[in-house]
Each structure stands twice: as structure tokens, then as C-alpha cells.
């Protein structure tokens, strides 16, 4: 556990040292603030004291930002060879994978913490469904974790950050809307399977305030799959 934290700390530090973290935070707060308060179906337009608008925007912003955060996590180490020095320390592959995963997740949580003023403001405007807000945040964290594990995996398979980014985005697009899009047209059994695989289906149900074990299991298994695949890639690179 200590080793995981040591690795996470360094990763997080490098996000801040390279300004990636600041750019990500500013852009995320800018986008989500703009669409929550000023433009489109914002809080004032729908005339409801709810954070639904924010969750919708954050859902898409995070979808694009997370691959940009994860793309260098393994690709850079593969390219410079530092992965070799890291894996010859008294750590195992899992600790490395989890350390990197946690670092990015922590950065996302920090970003979400900065949006708490939105919640406070909205709740001063009217009666807020607190349960829906909490489950909305939970949904964002779960879907971020899923995309982080996918992003870490795509970053690990090559030493090229761009490949890591694009591949993560390509896989992400399927979960983000392609599956649900096809599901709505297909019908029958295929449609049911695809609908279940779609992150948007699960995210919507969670962000509406319904925390179903089915949704939680879906996200957890997606995260698990991403991390297991990453570990498998690390293992394979050493044989």
C-alpha cells in the first residue's frame, strides 16, 4: 500500500510540475462553469435548482480530458526506459498500475472538489435534491475511473503518447455513445447487450439519483478489465 502511494505521489507531482494539472483544472472549470451557468440549457434557462446541466457537461469534458491525462503515464516511461528502473525496484506490476491509476483519479477528484461552489450556489437558489447531487458526483467519479483504466491501458501498449490518446478516445467513443446509439436502432438481444455496455446508460441512471448495484458492478468491472489488461501488457513486455 505504501509503495502504491509513493508512486501516486510522484505521478501527481509530475502532473503539477508539467502544468498539465493546472491546464486541465482551468479548462474543466471553465467549460463546466460556462455551460452550467451561462449558455445552453443552463441553470437559469431550465429554471430548476439542479446540477443536471453540470453533470451533462462534466460527463463530456472528462471524456475528452482523461485520455490527455493518462496518455503519457506509461508511454513516456516506455519511451525513455524509466519503466525498467521502476520495475526493478521492490514493487510489483500491480503496485505500479494502481499507483498511476490512483494519481489520475485523485486529480479528477480534486477537479470535482473545485465544483462544490456550484452546488452551494445552486442550493442557495432553491430546493436541491441532495441525493441526486451525491449520486451525480459518484457517477462522474465512476465513469472517470473507467476511462482512466482504459487510458492507462492504451498508454501502456506503445511508447507513443498520441497512439495512447487516440486509442483511448476510440475505445471511449464506443462506450460513450456508439453502443447506445446502435442499441437504439438494433432492437432485440443485441440491443440489450449493447445498451448494458454503454457507459451513458449507466451514468444517466446514476446521475438521476438511482444507485443500482447493476450500474456499480458495470463500472467496477470495466475498471478492473482496464487494470488487468495493463498489468498483462507490463508482464508481456518483460518476456
Amino acid at each position: 500500500m505504501k509503495q502504491i502511494w509513493v508512486i501516486s505521489k510522484r505521478e501527481l507531482q509530475s502532473f503539477f510540475d508539467s502544468l498539465t494539472a493546472y491546464i486541465m483544472l482551468i479548462a474543466f472549470l471553465g467549460f463546466s462553469g460556462f455551460f452550467t451557468w451561462l449558455f445552453g440549457s443552463d441553470v437559469f434557462f431550465v429554471k430548476q435548482a439542479s446540477l443536471q446541466a453540470f453533470f451533462g457537461v462534466a460527463y463530456w469534458t472528462l471524456f475528452f480530458f482523461i485520455p490527455a491525462l493518462t496518455m503519457r503515464q506509461f508511454a513516456e516511461e516506455n519511451k525513455t526506459g524509466t519503466i525498467e528502473l521502476l520495475l526493478t525496484r521492490p514493487v510489483n506490476d500491480w503496485q505500479v498500475v494502481l499507483g498511476k491509476f490512483l494519481a489520475t483519479l485523485l486529480l479528477i477528484v480534486i477537479a470535482l472538489l473545485f465544483t462544490l461552489p456550484y452546488y452551494i450556489t445552486v442550493s442557495s437558489l432553491g430546493e436541491v435534491d441532495h441525493g441526486a447531487v451525491i449520486s451525480g458526483y459518484l457517477g462522474l467519479i465512476l465513469m472517470s475511473a473507467a476511462y482512466i483504466s482504459i487510458g492507462i491501458f492504451t498508454s501502456s501498449i506503445s511508447n507513443n503518447q498520441i497512439i495512447g490518446f487516440l486509442l483511448a478516445l476510440a475505445i471511449g467513443i464506443m462506450f460513450q455513445f456508439l453502443f447506445s446509439f446502435i442499441a437504439s436502432g438494433a432492437g432485440g438481444f443485441v440491443s440489450e447487450v449493447l445498451a448494458f455496455l454503454s457507459i451513458s446508460t449507466h451514468f444517466e441512471s446514476i446521475s438521476r439519483g438511482v444507485i443500482d448495484s447493476k450500474d456499480i458492478i458495470f463500472f467496477l468491472s470495466l475498471i478492473f478489465m482496464g487494470l488487468v489488461s495493463t498489468e498483462a501488457v507490463l508482464q508481456k513486455n518483460r518476456t
Binding site: Q3, R10, S14, D17, T80, T82, L85, T88, R89, P90
Partner: peptide, 30 residues
């Protein structure tokens, strides 16, 4: 891994880290 010290051929290091921070990171991992 605990009793081996290793200097790989290309001497890969985290370029963006200050020396002291890097050594601290290594010491903690070890």
C-alpha cells in the same frame, strides 16, 4: 530487487524531476 542496485545502459531518468526529489522517490520505493 531489494538488494540489487541497477544502472541500465541508457541511464533512464525522469528528466523533469529535481535530483533531490528523484533520490527521495527512489529511497522511499526502496
Amino acid at each position: 530487487k531489494k538488494i540489487i542496485g541497477y544502472l541500465p545502459e541508457s541511464n533512464p531518468l525522469y528528466q523533469e524531476m529535481p535530483i533531490i526529489d528523484y533520490l527521495k522517490f527512489v529511497a522511499e520505493l526502496q
